[in-house]
Amino acid sequence: MLRRLFQIDGASVAVVFVLLIIVFMITAPQAFLGYRVYMSFMATVPPPLIIALGVTLVAVAGEMDLSFPSVVAAASYVFGILFQEWDVTWLAFFCAVAVGCAMGLVNGLVITLLGIPSLIATLAMLFLWGGLVTVLSGGIQLAIPDIYGTTMHSLLVGRIGGVFPVQMIWALLMAGFIWMLLNRHRFGENLLFIGDNLEVARMVGIDATREKIKLFALSGALSGLAGVLLTLETTAYFASQGMGYLLTVIAAVFIGGTSIFGGSGKVIGTVFAAFIVTVIEAGLVASGIQGFWTRFFIGFVFILSVTANAVIEDPDKVPLVRMLRTKLRKG
């Protein structure tokens, strides 16, 4: 019964999120009792959250995408340079997302046509795309302060009432769309069966190759969108911009309750977990703990929650739990 409750998309993660906020309200009241810190979360969480939505779908299919930091960089650069040189906004936006989508498409082709496991293939593509962006951009950084004040800027990353970051609304709409895609669309169903059992997917007539290519293209497009939002928010581009998301995005997906074994995904869980990761980071610093520790704690929470999620899914899949269970039965 309790287990069933925790299997509801996002339920257990939401509880953890609330507990975490309460803890930080006690340890860092000056920051966590005001509204400002929450507004800053809602400004910074959307880009990694949008990437994590794509990676959630990838994980559902039993695959992995580690290339997104370079896709973010590429999209940011394309957006920034088009705006700077040609003074275009929406065209730059669509070009940047299209570039992300194209990079994802190539990732998908490499994975399916060369048969390289996606974890390895996208790790290689992380370097390949990263290198390519650096070469093409000549290693420069861009500052585009002029973007501030454009219609696009206020529409995508403006502040409602001067305080509420509008990108949060876009990110939540995106989450709603991805939830529908996974849970209500035939594409999502195909991904669920591919991740559940590839051989079964083939026997029921799912074209796994085609679906995986579409999947990686979608993941690339979402990373591209995240790159644009990031560049709009910071009004700058530099090559290592997306790199900081590597840990937070992957952690968000699996802390959120998406199965590390594939075949099941929790979109709402991903949304809360993306906040959890950011809140831990900010909360520890605000509590006076040294910045270096944040990575340690995120890594720790990552392992802990992945284990907890695996136990909720199937206790026998965790060797330690299985050993303890047999010991208890014998003892």
């Binding site: 529908m180 669309h185 559940d196 029921v204």
Partner: peptide, 29 residues
């Protein structure tokens, strides 16, 4: 098929229709 052609993590209602779900024009089930 001889070997199970069912997705074990998926609910029955998906397994009955997988590969040919009843959808609207946009592909939503």
């Amino acid at each position: 098929h001889q070997t199970s052609s069912l997705g074990t993590k998926q609910p029955l209602w998906r397994n009955f229709f997988v590969g040919r779900p009843i959808t609207n024009a946009l592909g939503f089930i």
